[in-house]
Design a protein around this nucleic acid. Structure first.
Lengths: 292, 292
DNA sequence: TTTGCAATGAAACAGATGTTGCGCGTGGCG
DNA sequence: CGCCACGCGCAACATCTGTTTCATTGCAAA
């Protein structure tokens, strides 16, 4: 763990500094985020010092001026850029030893569990309300998101059989945008790189007056533009070679459950009817516990 | 994975904005840290827009001016101490309802994460070896397991395009048992109550001499009978109304990754070829960062 | 085509920013 | 004691900030 260069330099030079400069230096070290964002005069007012003090402090540390010091503070605060998926493949597989390969599943599960813990449940409930209020629900996910979309579609259909449809069922080209109506809910899943279809669909739904719910991996995701609710998940966290959809799936399931909870008695009744229908088709094996 | 309020507002308002404002808004969403730290003119130069555009953008979002917007961006980036305005309820929902409704998704995510922690990674590596050695891989999952099966199929196909097939593609009845050959790997996913088709398929594969890998929720699962490897997951562990497939998905992803790792250089080469093929189809949107 | 309106960039504006020169006060050293 | 070098705040300075105004553009309706 290496200390931030500007603050490290600051701490090192601190003992040999004049009293007021020490005061200012301590203030900067303690409030480095404010030092990076607020202006020098604001900082001086908060620290009870003169503006010139901070210029002199920066000079004493070897910087050309306060702006240069602040620039260094900003850079140390800059969040690490998310490494693109494609760039992580090559070094990953080449540097992987035999024992590391054996530990890969364990590390992936660990990362998935941690990623789930970072999910925000609040917008899920809000999104569930949108689905609940909508007369029809469209679910869309392409490429690797297709599976998650299918599961969400499946679970929603259990208690709203007539109202839920999976978009693009017959193939990637079958985007029946004409069927989207104002007031419908449209759930679009995706992560970088975003497929053309998902974006076209999201825009089409928005233009049709649909209430858009996006499941994506970034606030700046194209499919999330104009979305009433954005449910974020992490696709690229973890040691796996492919993006992980665990977070998306957990979110989708929570969304379905929350939507079901909003449905109350009638949703329960429809779920029971669906179960009865499946049983009549003998789709499932009889449970040896209940009917031996 | 909480979304910054100013960026959420920005994303929602984006579709109704003029072209250049949209451009600027996208830039801010993608570079929110720079938007918070650099000056407006610097930002304008980097975005290739006019300084006035950013003032207009801030106004369009309901802020008094750019400084106010940047202040909001700064506050959401502030590290440890909770900001006065950081906790905001999702718009459109009554505050009381949010608290009650948010409880279910939060508990579900928690349960899913805990369930992932209880998964056993050991048999995954062994199953991956079976898949690696098999000339052909069949993946099967019905009902709610269909989505997970589809994703596993998708990821395996990325580096073994010719060898992996999803069973029952055209419908639940299309079980092409005749195609199963001795030595093939057959992955069957399922949990109680087990669908008739999955059991029939598992038995058919076993009889045909396939090496069976089962993903199931119990050691005594019918589909696991005669399986060379059984990957267990918990389907009924959470507070949700429907079984959770998070564990199954995480397991499937780990399986695919481990199988890919076993493939070594040739798997990597085939993955690259697949990616190139998808890119040639222009299936994905270009990354605005790498190719502006 | 003409008219009206929104969108946009260039430039002018007031205010804030970081810097610098000056003067005052203080404390060590001859 | 006298001197002076240093630390420090104050205020003027040039510069840059965000904003506003205005003329031009593009586009759609009349």
């Amino acid at each position: 763990m290496v200390e931030d260069p500007p603050i490290a330099a600051l701490r090192r030079a601190l003992p040999g500094l004049p009293p007021r400069l020490q005061e200012a230096a301590r203030f900067v070290a303690r409030h480095d985020f404010d030092a990076a964002t607020r202006s020098m005069r604001e900082l001086a007012a908060a620290a009870g010092a003169s503006p010139a003090t901070f210029t002199r402090l920066a000079r004493a540390l070897g910087y050309a001026g306060w702006e240069e010091l602040r620039e260094a503070l900003i850079e140390t605060r800059r969040p690490v850029p998310a490494t693109p998926f494609s760039r992580r493949v090559a070094p990953g597989i080449e540097a992987m030893g035999v024992q590391a390969m054996a530990a890969l599943p364990a590390r992936m599960l660990e990362a998935d569990a941690a990623s789930l813990g970072r999910l925000d449940p609040a917008p899920i409930a809000a999104a569930a309300r949108i689905l609940h209020e909508a007369p029809r629900i469209w679910v869309a996910g392409f490429r690797s998101c297709r599976g998650v979309a299918q599961l969400l579609h499946y679970q929603l259909r259990l208690f709203r059989p007539a109202d839920v449809a999976l978009v693009g069922g017959a193939g990637p080209e079958d985007l029946d945008l004409g069927a989207l109506a104002a007031g419908d809910a449209l759930v679009v899943l995706g992560f970088a790189p975003y497929s053309q279809q998902s974006l076209r669909l999201a825009r089409g739904g928005r233009d049709a007056g649909c209430r858009l719910v996006a499941l994506a991996d970034a606030p700046a995701a194209p499919i999330a533009e104009g979305a009433e609710q954005l449910l974020l998940f992490e696709a690229a966290s973890g040691p796996g070679f492919f993006p992980s959809l665990t977070g998306a799936l957990a979110t989708a399931q929570a969304l379905a459950a929350a939507c079901f909870a909003l449905g109350g008695e009638s949703a329960l009744a429809r779920l029971r009817a669906t179960e009865a229908r499946l049983a009549a088709f003998a789709a499932y094996l009889p449970d040896p516990e209940t009917s031996p």
